[in-house]
């Protein structure tokens, strides 16, 4: 349903996208994960026909986003990472405005707006002013807004950012429901464990290109060439991280309070050797253990490797 090949976008000297390639099957929910500045927002706004790529093709439902933006817009609902709402407008007027902006017939609009508000649990808020809604409600209203024209494809840029856990769960539930309704969803997020339960597939991107993609299990496995080891020391965790970082087999070492998280490629013998070296280096080690990996750590490992660390 979404097919992106070799997308490139430059902003001056920064390569926001650098040969970005991705396929999303019809009716599947695909998660796009990447650190800040990876190019998620850029990729999504190109898909939403808001920016033009420098090179490469992007097709939504078989339509080229550059050649047929109007067709793509009719097919997609887009929720940007940051958005505002209009002052002095009621919730139903807000949705009514977007319904008219998609030239939907006036007749069915009231029922449509009622259904949408029901879907995002804002059924009782129809007469509230949009600028007075809470952040979570605005986010859900924005979801309702991208559904006004019943698009087949949804492009959601960090729809749960800035929400408390409860509101996040609500947004997640709505997205899951959209997936059940057969929509094709491309969703970006920083909240990786949550994407894991939500998505059929995930793509991890870094520096403007997809590094790994596949089902959640596949991606988790891809990062498992290296193991996550937590080393706890009495003091000097920062020093230890700097000392570990350039060593062979270490792809990432970062201090976190008293402990250091190390991504280390090596079997049990090599782990033991590493521990001996740390102790020999004069660090007072209180704990040294391997941690079971989840998506988040896989993500750290994969992106760390890309950076050549």
């Amino acid at each position: 349903m979404i097919s992106i090949r070799g997308l490139t976008k430059r902003f001056g000297r920064t390569m926001a996208l650098d040969g970005f390639t991705l396929e999303v099957q019809r009716g599947s929910v695909c998660g796009l994960i990447g650190p800040n500045g990876a190019g998620k927002t850029t990729a999504m706004s190109i898909l939403a026909t808001l920016q033009l790529p420098d090179e490469g093709d992007a097709l939504v439902g078989g339509l080229n986003v550059v050649e047929n933006p109007a067709g793509v817009r009719a097919l997609t609902g887009y929720m940007p990472d940051f958005f505002g709402v209009y002052d002095g407008l009621r919730v139903w007027e807000y949705l009514d405005f977007f319904a008219s902006a998609y030239y939907l017939p006036e007749g069915g609009r009231n029922r449509l707006i009622g259904n949408l508000l029901e879907l995002v649990n804002l059924g009782d808020k129809g007469d509230c002013y949009v600028d007075l809604l809470s952040r979570g409600m605005k986010q859900r209203l924005a979801l309702a807004r991208c559904l006004v024209h019943d698009p087949e494809v949804l492009i959601l840029d960090e729809p749960a950012s800035g929400l408390d856990p409860r509101a996040r769960a609500e947004v997640k539930e709505i997205i899951r429901q959209l997936g059940r309704m057969g929509k094709t969803v491309l969703i970006s997020s920083h909240i990786l464990p949550e994407l894991a339960e939500l998505c059929d597939r995930v793509a991890i991107m870094e520096n403007g290109r997809v590094v790994v993609s596949g089902t959640v299990d596949e991606v988790t496995a891809a990062g498992s060439g290296s193991r996550l080891i937590v080393v706890e020391v009495v003091e000097g965790a920062g020093d230890l991280a700097r000392w570990l970082a350039p060593r062979d087999g270490v792809s990432l070492a970062e201090a976190d309070g008293r402990s250091v998280r190390v991504f280390f490629r090596g079997d049990r013998n090599e782990q033991a050797a590493l521990l001996r070296e740390i102790v020999a280096g004069g660090y007072a080690v209180t704990q040294f253990h391997e941690v079971r990996r989840n998506l988040e750590e896989a993500f750290m490992a994969v992106t760390g490797e890309v950076n050549g660390r």
Binding site: S45, A48, T49, L50, A70, R73, A74, T76, Y78, M79, P80, F82, F83, G84, V85, Y86, F98, A101, Y102, Y103, A142, R145, H149
Partner: peptide, 13 residues
Amino acid sequence: EKQTLNVLLVTRL
């Protein structure tokens, strides 16, 4: 400034 332009531009207007 109010970040409402993007969503306006993706409509059919």
